[in-house]
């Protein structure tokens, strides 16, 4: 697989602060690449540099073989961008927004018309195509902005928090679209706060913290890499004294999650036996008992805390 995005020593300084600090990574053709990080870690700055919205202080970005610094127009023609906040023109209709985008990207008129009809139908907006965007709900706006990003049939799609604040149905539609685009060979650069989403959709994820890349790998490999975070999740019919559980043999840590207690351990079998003994001795009934491997969220928390 060839690299469609190559980032070398990318750096951005703002007023004496380093927002992005000499980061390097590549994105392969056809993969869904997740870009995760806590607020203020440098995610948006990085995406803005990758999409040519702002210029880096140093370093380089190459998109589809075009150096973004030297050939920004050619590089941008290969991209579609869905920003974090909807930026469709609210005074224009959905149709006019799509046609305007097509004109900006040099899409021939006839092609623009048929693509707009196809996308509006796909995103369930065709009936509202002549309505001004200011009358749209947040979900409809997000679907429209996503449709706008596909008007130039891009090779690479940048999605910044595409499902943030959406209702379940709209979020599912966008995720389904990501899968479909991946299946057609498009490359997707996905920024998200939702670890489940990244875990479900991404072939690889990069975690950025304090402007530096903390880790890049497939989600499952990252989970294995951090290790030692297996846990047993249990809930009882009555409240229990957590300090009793913490004192059990082989327990590395205890965390409350709603009415459930998460016991971190390297020996899940021994922990389960201990919990059964504990419930018997206190005459408690176990409601749920699950053995869980670390989630991408655990990886994220561990890596961003350590950094």
């Amino acid at each position: 697989m060839k690299n469609v995005i190559e980032v070398k020593e990318l750096t951005k300084h703002y007023n004496g602060l380093t927002a992005v600090d000499h980061i390097n990574f590549e994105v392969e053709e056809g993969e869904v690449f997740g870009f995760l990080g806590p607020n203020g870690a440098g995610k948006t700055t990085t995406v803005r540099m990758l999409t040519g919205v702002i210029k880096p202080s140093s370093g380089s970005v190459s998109v589809m073989g075009f150096d973004l610094g030297r050939h920004p127009i050619r590089a941008k023609e290969t991209m579609g961008v869905v920003p974090e906040l909807s930026n469709a023109y609210t005074e224009l209709s959905a149709w006019n927004n799509l046609q305007f985008t097509a004109e900006l990207y040099g899409v021939p008129k006839r092609e623009a018309k048929s693509r707009a009809e196809e996308l509006l139908t796909k995103f369930d907006l065709y009936d509202r195509k002549d309505h001004k965007v200011k009358t749209f709900s947040k979900g409809m706006k997000q679907k429209l902005v996503t449709a706008m990003s596909l008007m130039n049939d891009p090779d690479i799609l940048f999605l910044d928090e595409p499902t943030s604040g959406l209702d379940v149905r709209s979020a599912r539609l966008i995720k389904e679209m990501v899968r479909e685009l991946r299946d057609t060979g498009k490359t997707i650069f996905l920024t998200t706060h939702y670890m489940d989403e990244a875990s479900q959709l991404c072939n690889r994820v990069a975690i950025i913290n304090h402007g530096q890349i903390a880790a890049i790998d497939a989600p499952e490999k990252l989970k294995v890499r951090i290790g030692g975070l297996q846990y047993v999740e249990v809930s009882f019919t009555a409240p229990v004294d957590v300090s009793d559980l913490r004192a059990m043999a082989g327990i590395a840590g205890v965390r409350m999650s709603g009415d459930k207690i998460q016991l971190y351990t390297d020996e899940p079998d021994r922990t389960i036996r201990g919990l059964v003994d504990y419930s018997r001795s206190f005459n408690l009934e176990i409601v749920t008992l699950n053995t869980l491997t670390p989630t991408l969220e655990d990886v994220f928390v561990k890596l961003t805390e350590e950094e």
């Binding site: 040519g52 919205v53 900006l104």
Partner: peptide, 9 residues
């Protein structure tokens, strides 16, 4: 931001 990300100077 939309205009800045588009292939236009």
């Amino acid at each position: 931001e939309r205009l800045a990300a588009a292939p236009i100077s």
